[in-house]
């Protein structure tokens, strides 16, 4: 298979992961904000002494979205890098093209596989 096809598959897989992580991050943020709002409007029946603690907990829950966001940023950077290499590979010829192809696979092995 042409290396470009592999690269396309890799990029597509990354994009799916990014979409999934965006959804997950939004869900976490939504849950955290919901806790804060329900607490602020006294819909949650916690004792008065716990109100500020519940608000802080809502904030903490929302802040957990940093983890999937970090992975989104990571994957976007990898997509950018692989796309760059692929572009270079497309416009090169002969020995350069072969070297670039090896470089791409090495990059994939090292960065993509973790």
């Amino acid at each position: 298979m042409d290396v470009d096809l592999y690269i396309d598959q890799i990029i597509q897989t990354y994009k799916n992961s990014i979409r999934f992580r965006i959804g997950f991050a939004l869900l976490i943020i939504f849950i955290g904000l919901l806790i804060i709002l329900l607490n602020a409007f006294n819909i949650l029946t916690f004792p008065n002494e716990m109100k500020s603690l519940v608000s802080v907990s809502g904030t903490l829950v929302s802040s957990v979205c940093a983890f999937p966001i970090k992975e989104i940023v990571d994957r976007k950077n990898r997509i950018k890098l692989i796309s760059e290499l692929s572009e270079q590979h497309k416009h090169s010829t002969g020995a350069d093209k072969k070297k670039l192809e090896e470089l791409i696979w090495k990059f994939i092995e090292k960065n993509v596989l973790g």
Partner: peptide, 24 residues
């Protein structure tokens, strides 16, 4: 070999999803 690498990559992505759930 290239197919294997691709397959490994896809499995790794699945594992990273599970890790994300666990860590969050």
């Amino acid at each position: 070999k290239n197919e294997q690498i691709l397959s490994k990559f896809q499995n790794e992505e699945k594992r990273s999803r599970k890790r994300m759930f666990l860590y969050t």
